[in-house]
C-alpha cells in the first residue's frame, strides 16, 4: 500500500505584518507578527506565526455589554488604561484594541485631541501593540485615527479601519506618515477586498502594511458567507494574487451580539457557557478559514481560541 501526504504547490505566499517595535529600535517593547504562511495547512509547511488575539476595550463604560462579559471588567471600565493593564496582566493579552466609541457625534462627540490624549496614556500603561479603532462614524473616524496615529508614531499599530465609506486615503496617509499598518475592511465580497487593497496600494501604502477584514458574521448570522469570502481570499493569495495576499482579521466580538449568545432563555441553558462558546465557535470557524488576528472580548473565549491556535502552529 502506498500513499503520500497530499502536499500542494503554491506560487504565492501570505505577507507578514508586524505590530509594535522592539526597544532596540526605539519602540515600547513587545512585537507581534502575523501572516507569513507559504501554504494552506501546517502539514504542508510549518506555519510561521501563531494566531493572535487582541482584546477589545472601550474609551467609555459600556453598559450594553452582556453581564457575563462585564463581570470581568466591571472594576476597570471607568478607566481604559486600567482596563488595558488588566487584559495584559491578568489575561495575558498579546495586543489591545481601543475603540474610541465616545468620539461618535451621536454619543459624546469627544474631541479628537482628547482621543489622542487617551491614546498616549494607553501607550504608557502597557507595552503591547495596539489596534486603534474609531467609533464607526465615517466623517470623524479618519480624524480620530490620524490624531492617534500621530501620538503613537513608530509603534506600528493597526489603524481600524480604512473602508469604502470613508476617506480611506486620509487613513492610509496617517499610516505612511507615522509608521503604522492599516486594516482594510470590506463586506464579505472578495472582489471588494481586492478593490480596496488596490486603491490603498496605488495611493502609496506598502502592501506589507495591510491587514484585510472581509467581515465576520456571527455564527448563525451568515458565518457561511464569511467562510466563503475568507477561504477564497486566502487561496487566491497563496496562488499568487498580490492584491489579496495580506493576513486577515476578524471582528469575532460580533458573535456576542447574536441573541443565542446573550439572551436570557431557560430553554437555551446557562448563558455563562453559551455566550463564550458562541464566540469561540465563531472565532474558530474564522481561524480555520484563514484568519490571523482576532478581536475578542470574553476571557474564556480568548483562552480557548488561543490554545487551539497555538497547536496549529507547533
Amino acid at each position: 500500500i502506498d500513499w503520500e501526504i497530499p502536499i500542494n504547490k503554491y506560487k504565492g505566499h501570505i505577507r507578514e505584518v508586524q505590530f509594535g517595535k522592539p526597544k532596540s529600535e526605539g519602540g515600547r517593547g513587545k512585537v507581534v507578527k502575523i501572516g507569513g504562511q507559504k501554504a494552506l495547512y501546517r502539514f504542508e509547511e510549518p506555519q510561521p506565526n501563531a494566531p493572535v488575539v487582541t482584546f477589545d476595550i472601550f474609551d467609555m463604560p459600556m453598559p450594553g455589554l452582556p453581564k457575563n462579559v462585564r463581570q470581568y471588567f466591571e472594576d476597570v471600565m471607568q478607566d481604559p488604561a486600567e482596563w488595558a493593564k488588566k487584559c495584559v496582566k491578568e489575561f495575558g493579552a498579546d495586543m489591545i484594541t481601543i475603540h474610541h466609541i465616545s468620539t461618535d457625534p451621536k454619543i459624546k462627540d469627544t474631541p479628537v485631541k482628547d482621543a489622542a490624549k487617551l491614546m498616549e496614556e494607553l501607550l504608557q500603561a502597557v507595552d503591547v501593540p495596539f489596534v486603534i479603532g474609531g467609533s464607526g462614524d465615517p466623517k470623524k473616524d479618519p480624524l480620530v485615527l490620524e490624531a492617534c496615529a500621530e501620538v503613537a508614531e513608530g509603534e506600528r499599530c493597526l489603524l481600524a479601519s480604512a473602508n469604502l465609506d470613508l476617506d480611506y486615503k486620509k487613513v492610509a496617509d496617517a499610516a505612511m506618515k507615522y509608521d503604522h499598518n492599516v486594516l482594510s475592511w470590506t463586506i464579505m465580497d472578495p472582489n471588494m477586498a481586492k478593490d480596496l487593497n488596490r486603491r490603498l496600494i496605488s495611493h502609496g501604502l506598502d502592501g506589507d502594511r495591510i491587514v484585510m477584514d472581509p467581515t465576520t458574521c456571527s455564527l448563525g448570522y451568515g458565518s457561511e458567507f464569511s467562510i466563503n469570502a475568507m477561504t477564497r481570499l486566502r487561496i487566491s493569495g497563496l496562488k499568487g494574487d498580490e492584491l489579496v495576499n495580506m493576513p486577515m482579521s476578524s471582528g469575532t466580538t460580533n458573535a456576542i451580539g447574536a441573541r443565542e449568545a446573550w439572551m436570557k432563555n431557560p430553554k437555551w441553558g446557562d448563558r455563562a457557557y453559551r455566550l463564550p462558546l458562541w464566540e469561540i465557535t465563531t472565532g474558530l470557524t474564522m481561524l480555520l478559514s484563514g484568519v490571523d488576528i482576532f478581536m475578542m472580548l470574553h476571557p474564556v473565549s480568548i483562552t480557548a481560541l488561543k490554545e487551539l491556535g497555538k497547536t496549529l502552529t507547533t
Binding site: 455564527l219 457561511e224 467562510i227 443565542e260 441553558g269 458562541w278
Partner: peptide, 18 residues
C-alpha cells in the same frame, strides 16, 4: 448533552451545509 453546548454545534452544522 446540555443545550448550550449543542446549540452552537447544530447551528454551525446548519450554516456549513446550507
Amino acid at each position: 448533552t446540555e443545550v448550550w453546548e449543542l446549540m452552537p454545534i447544530l447551528t454551525l452544522r446548519q450554516a456549513i451545509f446550507t
